[in-house]
Design a protein around this nucleic acid. Sequence first.
DNA 1: GACAATATTAACCGATAGGTCAATTATTAT
DNA 2: ATAATAATTGACCTATCGGTTAATATTGTC
Lengths: 238, 238
Amino acid sequence: MVQRKRNTPKKYKPGKIREQNYARILDAAEALFATHGFKGTSMMQIAERVNLPKANVHYYFKSKSLLYAKVLERIIDTWNQGLEDIKAEDDPKTVLSAYIAAKVQNACEKPLPSRLFATEIITGAPYLKDYIKEDMREWIKEKTTVFNQWIAAGKLKPVDPVRLIFLIWASTQHYADFETQVLLLTNRQEYDDEEITKTQQFLTTIILDALIPSYSENNTPKGMIDNPVTFDKTLLAV
Amino acid sequence: MVQRKRNTPKKYKPGKIREQNYARILDAAEALFATHGFKGTSMMQIAERVNLPKANVHYYFKSKSLLYAKVLERIIDTWNQGLEDIKAEDDPKTVLSAYIAAKVQNACEKPLPSRLFATEIITGAPYLKDYIKEDMREWIKEKTTVFNQWIAAGKLKPVDPVRLIFLIWASTQHYADFETQVLLLTNRQEYDDEEITKTQQFLTTIILDALIPSYSENNTPKGMIDNPVTFDKTLLAV
DNA sequence: GACAATATTAACCGATAGGTCAATTATTAT
DNA sequence: ATAATAATTGACCTATCGGTTAATATTGTC
């Protein structure tokens, strides 16, 4: 992709330094903004986290607002995955299971973006208002169309597709945004793989059971739903 | 409750002023903290909102932290409602329906406490850690016991009670915490009564359908689940 | 009205915030 | 080597923050 015209002197190569520091600062900013919010995070804290003087951070990012915007931008770019191109011919059971599972996995293993997004929304989406009104809204419309086709074909019970999407978002992102609460209540230090799997199965079962005609009859093997006694001993063990 | 010993001069009555300003400041603080977070809210903003000089706010609340703590305290006190004393003999369908409906109603009509609580959790629950570990955990344990009794009695399908509670919390509070997103995506200015009712019905149907044996056969009157076509015209109208 | 407790308020303080700047050092191409 | 660009850094600026103080005004009881 790098083009160089003939007889033109080699341009100064920005080196990996910029690229590297740029990314490191973004990472640090993401973590701090996610936990302490925009106002609660200082440029000094970000600088200390990447072992650079504050002025150096300002060298790469002109202002705190711009840095915050770039962090959000990167999150949005990464988030444009999942339910990419579903079609009326697809099987809603397969598609939705995979989507829910991916969302839970993401929430548990990479909670910071979700938390940052949550605080952005709670504070009135000052930076993402346009993105929500345009891109996100378009995404919802596309999915709604397919959901309604599924409903018309009898593959899905007649429910409000938008509210369904909200339900999936809320129930999965909860494990990222409210991780502190979940871990405190369940007396855990972190999510382990078994717990993630169980959460995936739980949400998939509950939601698909209510959505797919005769889902539970065919898709509820032993152990798919937690044994309540076993659970009581493990998850709520003091 | 006011006692006065004989011959003792009447104590100075603090008047309504303190009580009034105290409450007004708490209200203002709640609204601002909920929207802008702890760090994002200044004592000056709170003072301006109640038309008092900043020093006057400090006269009633020694510090910002203490004011924040008092706001949280008041929220917690108000929140100790719902699912108060459920018993094994109760009907889970009735109890859970009422709980979900109340949570949705509360989320839509009084979203600020929920949002403030959410930011408190997202930032690591610095003030509510103990409350969660003790009171909230105890609450969960009690409910879990009853849920498991329901399951043993065949009134409830065998699901993880804790995850079920998380699901209800997440799916209902979503309409408070992510109100901005929901309204932007659905092109609304606010939640109207019809929408609240539909959300209540939607969540009740979905969750109970998956939880109560043979729920949908008996409890799905026409119109209980949104007509997708009607919905597409109304909720997503441009 | 007198006295005491309560309430109001402007002015002020030290700390920290975001942001700038100029001087210095490191890097790269010729 | 050298010139040009990129990167680093300490010092500095102004604004705002939470919080204090001390003086004044208001309110309630006798």
